[in-house]
Amino acid sequence: MEINDLLIFLKVAESNSITKAAEELGYVQPNVSERVKKLEGELGVPLFDRTNRGVEILSAGEIVQNYANKIMSLIEEMKGTVRSEIEIYNIGTTQSIAKIYLEKRFAENESMCSLFVESNLTLKKLLKNNEVDMVITNRFLNDTTFKKIHHIKENLILLKSINKKKVDLQTETFFVSRDQKCPFRQHTLQYIQDKSLLNSQVIEIDSFDIILTMVSAQKGIAFLPESSLDNGFETANDIEPKVFEINFYIRKDSNKSIPNFLIS
Protein backbone atom coordinates (compact mmCIF):
# COMPACT_ATOMS: atom_id res chain seq x y z
CA MET A 1 0.00 0.00 0.00
CA GLU A 2 1.41 3.37 -1.04
CA ILE A 3 0.81 6.72 0.63
CA ASN A 4 -0.26 8.15 -2.71
CA ASP A 5 -3.04 5.54 -2.93
CA LEU A 6 -4.42 6.82 0.38
CA LEU A 7 -4.26 10.41 -0.89
CA ILE A 8 -6.19 9.43 -4.02
CA PHE A 9 -8.72 7.50 -1.94
CA LEU A 10 -9.27 10.49 0.39
CA LYS A 11 -9.79 12.83 -2.55
CA VAL A 12 -12.37 10.47 -4.12
CA ALA A 13 -14.15 10.15 -0.76
CA GLU A 14 -14.16 13.93 -0.34
CA SER A 15 -15.52 14.71 -3.82
CA ASN A 16 -17.79 11.62 -4.19
CA SER A 17 -16.51 11.41 -7.74
CA ILE A 18 -13.59 9.70 -9.45
CA THR A 19 -13.79 12.24 -12.27
CA LYS A 20 -13.62 15.26 -9.95
CA ALA A 21 -10.85 13.67 -7.89
CA ALA A 22 -8.81 13.07 -11.06
CA GLU A 23 -9.27 16.69 -12.14
CA GLU A 24 -8.22 18.10 -8.74
CA LEU A 25 -5.22 15.79 -8.51
CA GLY A 26 -4.15 16.34 -12.11
CA TYR A 27 -4.45 12.66 -13.01
CA VAL A 28 -6.33 10.93 -15.81
CA GLN A 29 -9.54 9.24 -14.68
CA PRO A 30 -8.48 5.63 -15.50
CA ASN A 31 -5.40 6.05 -13.31
CA VAL A 32 -7.50 7.12 -10.33
CA SER A 33 -9.94 4.24 -10.88
CA GLU A 34 -7.05 1.79 -11.07
CA ARG A 35 -5.47 3.03 -7.82
CA VAL A 36 -8.80 2.78 -5.97
CA LYS A 37 -9.34 -0.76 -7.27
CA LYS A 38 -5.79 -1.67 -6.24
CA LEU A 39 -6.48 -0.44 -2.71
CA GLU A 40 -9.75 -2.37 -2.58
CA GLY A 41 -7.92 -5.47 -3.79
CA GLU A 42 -5.29 -5.17 -1.06
CA LEU A 43 -7.95 -4.77 1.62
CA GLY A 44 -10.23 -7.40 0.14
CA VAL A 45 -13.40 -5.30 0.38
CA PRO A 46 -15.13 -2.68 -1.80
CA LEU A 47 -14.77 0.86 -0.48
CA PHE A 48 -17.20 2.68 -2.77
CA ASP A 49 -20.52 2.01 -4.38
CA ARG A 50 -20.28 3.12 -8.03
CA THR A 51 -23.42 4.88 -9.35
CA ASN A 52 -24.34 6.98 -12.38
CA ARG A 53 -24.02 10.09 -10.18
CA GLY A 54 -20.54 9.21 -8.96
CA VAL A 55 -19.45 7.13 -5.98
CA GLU A 56 -20.79 6.70 -2.46
CA ILE A 57 -18.48 5.62 0.32
CA LEU A 58 -19.35 2.32 2.01
CA SER A 59 -18.94 1.44 5.70
CA ALA A 60 -15.57 -0.20 5.00
CA GLY A 61 -14.55 2.94 3.15
CA GLU A 62 -15.46 5.09 6.17
CA ILE A 63 -13.16 2.96 8.33
CA VAL A 64 -10.34 3.37 5.82
CA GLN A 65 -11.06 7.09 5.59
CA ASN A 66 -10.72 7.47 9.36
CA TYR A 67 -7.38 5.64 9.44
CA ALA A 68 -6.10 7.39 6.31
CA ASN A 69 -6.74 10.80 7.86
CA LYS A 70 -4.82 9.76 10.98
CA ILE A 71 -1.94 8.48 8.84
CA MET A 72 -1.76 11.70 6.83
CA SER A 73 -1.89 13.75 10.03
CA LEU A 74 1.02 11.76 11.47
CA ILE A 75 3.00 12.22 8.26
CA GLU A 76 2.52 16.00 8.41
CA GLU A 77 3.52 15.98 12.08
CA MET A 78 6.64 14.01 11.20
CA LYS A 79 7.53 16.45 8.42
CA GLY A 80 7.11 19.41 10.76
CA THR A 81 9.26 17.80 13.45
CA VAL A 82 12.01 16.96 10.97
CA ARG A 83 11.94 20.47 9.49
CA SER A 84 12.15 22.04 12.95
CA GLU A 85 15.27 19.98 13.65
CA ILE A 86 17.13 20.94 10.49
CA GLU A 87 15.81 24.45 9.74
CA ILE A 88 17.43 27.44 11.35
CA TYR A 89 14.82 29.37 13.30
CA ASN A 90 15.49 33.12 13.37
CA ILE A 91 14.68 34.94 16.59
CA GLY A 92 14.76 38.68 17.18
CA THR A 93 14.90 40.08 20.71
CA THR A 94 16.46 42.71 22.96
CA GLN A 95 19.69 42.43 24.95
CA SER A 96 17.91 42.06 28.27
CA ILE A 97 15.58 39.28 27.10
CA ALA A 98 18.44 37.48 25.36
CA LYS A 99 20.30 37.48 28.66
CA ILE A 100 17.55 36.70 31.16
CA TYR A 101 15.38 34.40 29.06
CA LEU A 102 17.25 32.92 26.11
CA GLU A 103 20.85 32.45 27.23
CA LYS A 104 20.22 29.40 29.41
CA ARG A 105 17.65 27.90 27.02
CA PHE A 106 20.05 28.17 24.10
CA ALA A 107 22.76 26.43 26.12
CA GLU A 108 20.49 23.55 27.19
CA ASN A 109 18.87 22.80 23.81
CA GLU A 110 20.11 21.64 20.43
CA SER A 111 17.58 23.31 18.13
CA MET A 112 19.20 25.37 15.40
CA CYS A 113 18.39 29.03 16.13
CA SER A 114 19.88 32.27 14.90
CA LEU A 115 19.63 35.28 17.21
CA PHE A 116 19.18 38.93 16.21
CA VAL A 117 19.70 41.32 19.14
CA GLU A 118 18.24 44.71 18.25
CA SER A 119 16.21 47.63 19.59
CA ASN A 120 12.45 47.20 19.88
CA LEU A 121 11.86 49.49 16.89
CA THR A 122 14.17 47.44 14.68
CA LEU A 123 12.65 44.16 15.85
CA LYS A 124 9.22 45.15 14.56
CA LYS A 125 10.70 45.96 11.15
CA LEU A 126 12.55 42.64 11.01
CA LEU A 127 9.36 40.66 11.63
CA LYS A 128 7.38 42.85 9.24
CA ASN A 129 9.93 42.19 6.48
CA ASN A 130 10.00 38.45 7.28
CA GLU A 131 13.70 38.64 8.20
CA VAL A 132 13.07 36.83 11.50
CA ASP A 133 10.58 34.08 12.34
CA MET A 134 9.76 35.31 15.83
CA VAL A 135 10.16 38.45 17.91
CA ILE A 136 10.37 38.24 21.69
CA THR A 137 9.82 41.67 23.18
CA ASN A 138 8.57 43.45 26.27
CA ARG A 139 6.45 45.71 24.09
CA PHE A 140 2.99 45.28 22.56
CA LEU A 141 3.28 45.09 18.77
CA ASN A 142 0.11 46.46 17.23
CA ASP A 143 0.19 45.05 13.72
CA THR A 144 -2.53 43.05 11.98
CA THR A 145 0.06 40.85 10.24
CA PHE A 146 1.45 39.63 13.58
CA LYS A 147 0.10 36.97 15.92
CA LYS A 148 0.91 36.83 19.63
CA ILE A 149 1.43 33.17 20.52
CA HIS A 150 2.80 33.28 24.07
CA HIS A 151 3.72 35.56 26.94
CA ILE A 152 5.37 35.32 30.34
CA LYS A 153 5.29 37.72 33.27
CA GLU A 154 8.37 38.99 35.09
CA ASN A 155 8.84 41.22 38.12
CA LEU A 156 10.99 44.33 37.75
CA ILE A 157 12.81 45.20 40.98
CA LEU A 158 15.57 47.56 42.10
CA LEU A 159 18.73 45.50 42.59
CA LYS A 160 22.17 45.98 44.06
CA SER A 161 25.19 43.74 44.55
CA ILE A 162 24.96 41.46 47.60
CA ASN A 163 28.33 42.92 48.62
CA LYS A 164 27.03 46.51 48.62
CA LYS A 165 26.29 47.34 52.23
CA LYS A 166 24.34 50.58 51.92
CA VAL A 167 22.23 52.33 49.30
CA ASP A 168 21.67 56.07 49.50
CA LEU A 169 19.05 56.93 46.88
CA GLN A 170 19.95 60.63 47.02
CA THR A 171 23.45 60.01 45.70
CA GLU A 172 23.19 56.56 44.09
CA THR A 173 23.96 55.95 40.40
CA PHE A 174 21.20 54.33 38.34
CA PHE A 175 22.16 52.40 35.22
CA VAL A 176 19.73 52.29 32.28
CA SER A 177 19.70 51.22 28.64
CA ARG A 178 19.97 53.87 25.94
CA ASP A 179 16.97 52.29 24.17
CA GLN A 180 14.17 54.87 24.60
CA LYS A 181 11.52 52.11 24.46
CA CYS A 182 13.14 49.91 27.11
CA PRO A 183 10.59 49.38 29.93
CA PHE A 184 13.44 49.14 32.49
CA ARG A 185 14.66 52.58 31.41
CA GLN A 186 11.17 54.08 31.41
CA HIS A 187 10.40 52.71 34.86
CA THR A 188 13.75 53.98 36.22
CA LEU A 189 13.19 57.51 34.91
CA GLN A 190 9.66 57.56 36.31
CA TYR A 191 10.95 56.36 39.68
CA ILE A 192 13.62 59.09 39.77
CA GLN A 193 10.99 61.71 38.97
CA ASP A 194 8.59 60.40 41.63
CA LYS A 195 11.38 60.41 44.24
CA SER A 196 12.58 63.89 43.20
CA LEU A 197 16.04 62.52 42.47
CA LEU A 198 18.50 64.04 39.99
CA ASN A 199 18.65 63.14 36.30
CA SER A 200 22.41 63.39 36.62
CA GLN A 201 22.29 60.19 38.68
CA VAL A 202 21.35 58.26 35.53
CA ILE A 203 24.09 56.63 33.45
CA GLU A 204 23.17 55.20 30.05
CA ILE A 205 24.87 52.00 28.92
CA ASP A 206 24.02 50.24 25.66
CA SER A 207 25.11 46.80 26.87
CA PHE A 208 22.84 44.89 29.25
CA ASP A 209 25.78 42.67 30.20
CA ILE A 210 27.83 45.73 31.21
CA ILE A 211 24.94 47.04 33.30
CA LEU A 212 24.95 43.72 35.17
CA THR A 213 28.73 43.97 35.56
CA MET A 214 28.59 47.54 36.91
CA VAL A 215 25.91 46.64 39.45
CA SER A 216 27.87 43.56 40.46
CA ALA A 217 30.98 45.74 40.90
CA GLN A 218 29.02 47.99 43.33
CA LYS A 219 29.21 50.97 40.96
CA GLY A 220 25.49 51.61 41.18
CA ILE A 221 22.04 50.04 41.12
CA ALA A 222 19.46 49.24 38.44
CA PHE A 223 15.90 48.11 37.92
CA LEU A 224 16.29 44.56 36.65
CA PRO A 225 14.16 41.41 36.21
CA GLU A 226 13.71 39.39 39.39
CA SER A 227 15.41 36.43 37.70
CA SER A 228 18.66 38.44 37.89
CA LEU A 229 18.78 37.63 41.62
CA ASP A 230 20.59 34.43 40.61
CA ASN A 231 23.58 36.55 39.51
CA GLY A 232 24.67 37.63 42.97
CA PHE A 233 22.21 40.51 43.42
CA GLU A 234 19.67 41.40 46.09
CA THR A 235 16.87 43.94 46.39
CA ALA A 236 18.05 47.47 47.09
CA ASN A 237 14.89 48.44 49.04
CA ASP A 238 11.34 47.37 49.72
CA ILE A 239 9.75 48.82 46.58
CA GLU A 240 6.79 46.78 45.34
CA PRO A 241 7.83 44.95 42.13
CA LYS A 242 6.46 46.19 38.82
CA VAL A 243 5.08 43.42 36.62
CA PHE A 244 5.92 43.49 32.93
CA GLU A 245 5.25 41.03 30.12
CA ILE A 246 7.57 39.35 27.65
CA ASN A 247 5.55 38.79 24.48
CA PHE A 248 6.17 36.32 21.67
CA TYR A 249 5.10 37.28 18.14
CA ILE A 250 5.19 35.52 14.79
CA ARG A 251 3.73 36.49 11.42
CA LYS A 252 0.18 35.23 10.86
CA ASP A 253 1.25 33.67 7.56
CA SER A 254 4.15 31.77 9.12
CA ASN A 255 4.17 27.98 8.64
CA LYS A 256 7.54 27.35 10.23
CA SER A 257 7.60 25.00 13.22
CA ILE A 258 8.38 26.80 16.50
CA PRO A 259 11.12 25.16 18.62
CA ASN A 260 9.42 23.83 21.74
CA PHE A 261 12.07 25.15 24.14
CA LEU A 262 11.15 28.76 23.32
CA ILE A 263 7.64 28.61 24.77
CA SER A 264 7.73 25.62 27.10
Rank of each mutant, 00 (worst) to 15 (best):
residue 6 L to K: 04
residue 7 L to K: 15
residue 9 F to D: 01
residue 10 L to Q: 11
residue 12 V to W: 09
residue 12 V to F: 07
residue 13 A to L: 01
residue 19 T to M: 07
residue 19 T to R: 10
residue 28 V to Y: 10
residue 28 V to G: 07
residue 29 Q to N: 11
residue 30 P to Y: 07
residue 32 V to Y: 10
residue 37 K to V: 08
residue 46 P to W: 03
residue 47 L to A: 03
residue 49 D to R: 14
residue 49 D to Q: 11
residue 51 T to Q: 07
residue 53 R to N: 06
residue 56 E to P: 00
residue 58 L to E: 05
residue 59 S to D: 13
residue 59 S to V: 11
residue 60 A to C: 04
residue 61 G to E: 05
residue 61 G to M: 00
residue 70 K to H: 02
residue 71 I to A: 13
residue 71 I to W: 02
residue 72 M to I: 15
residue 78 M to I: 09
residue 83 R to M: 14
residue 84 S to P: 06
residue 85 E to Q: 12
residue 89 Y to K: 01
residue 90 N to D: 10
residue 91 I to V: 14
residue 93 T to G: 02
residue 93 T to S: 08
residue 94 T to M: 02
residue 98 A to K: 06
residue 101 Y to P: 03
residue 101 Y to C: 02
residue 102 L to E: 08
residue 102 L to G: 05
residue 107 A to S: 12
residue 107 A to R: 13
residue 107 A to M: 06
residue 108 E to D: 11
residue 111 S to M: 03
residue 117 V to E: 09
residue 117 V to F: 00
residue 119 S to A: 09
residue 121 L to V: 12
residue 121 L to C: 02
residue 123 L to A: 11
residue 125 K to C: 03
residue 129 N to W: 12
residue 130 N to T: 07
residue 130 N to A: 15
residue 132 V to A: 00
residue 133 D to L: 00
residue 134 M to S: 01
residue 139 R to W: 01
residue 139 R to N: 12
residue 140 F to Y: 13
residue 142 N to R: 12
residue 142 N to C: 10
residue 142 N to V: 14
residue 143 D to N: 15
residue 144 T to I: 11
residue 146 F to N: 01
residue 153 K to H: 05
residue 154 E to I: 00
residue 155 N to Q: 08
residue 157 I to K: 12
residue 157 I to C: 06
residue 159 L to M: 07
residue 160 K to R: 15
residue 165 K to I: 06
residue 170 Q to A: 12
residue 170 Q to N: 15
residue 171 T to I: 13
residue 171 T to D: 15
residue 173 T to Q: 09
residue 177 S to E: 05
residue 178 R to M: 06
residue 180 Q to K: 13
residue 184 F to W: 10
residue 185 R to M: 06
residue 186 Q to E: 13
residue 188 T to L: 06
residue 191 Y to S: 10
residue 192 I to P: 11
residue 193 Q to M: 11
residue 193 Q to G: 00
residue 193 Q to I: 15
residue 193 Q to S: 12
residue 196 S to H: 09
residue 196 S to Y: 02
residue 196 S to Q: 09
residue 196 S to K: 10
residue 197 L to Y: 13
residue 198 L to S: 14
residue 199 N to A: 01
residue 200 S to N: 14
residue 202 V to L: 05
residue 203 I to A: 13
residue 204 E to Q: 14
residue 205 I to C: 06
residue 206 D to T: 09
residue 208 F to S: 01
residue 214 M to Y: 14
residue 214 M to D: 07
residue 215 V to K: 11
residue 216 S to R: 06
residue 217 A to N: 15
residue 217 A to H: 12
residue 221 I to L: 08
residue 227 S to R: 15
residue 228 S to W: 00
residue 228 S to C: 15
residue 228 S to D: 11
residue 231 N to M: 13
residue 233 F to H: 02
residue 237 N to G: 01
residue 244 F to H: 05
residue 251 R to L: 15
residue 253 D to C: 03
residue 253 D to V: 04
residue 256 K to N: 08
residue 259 P to I: 06
residue 262 L to R: 00
residue 263 I to H: 00
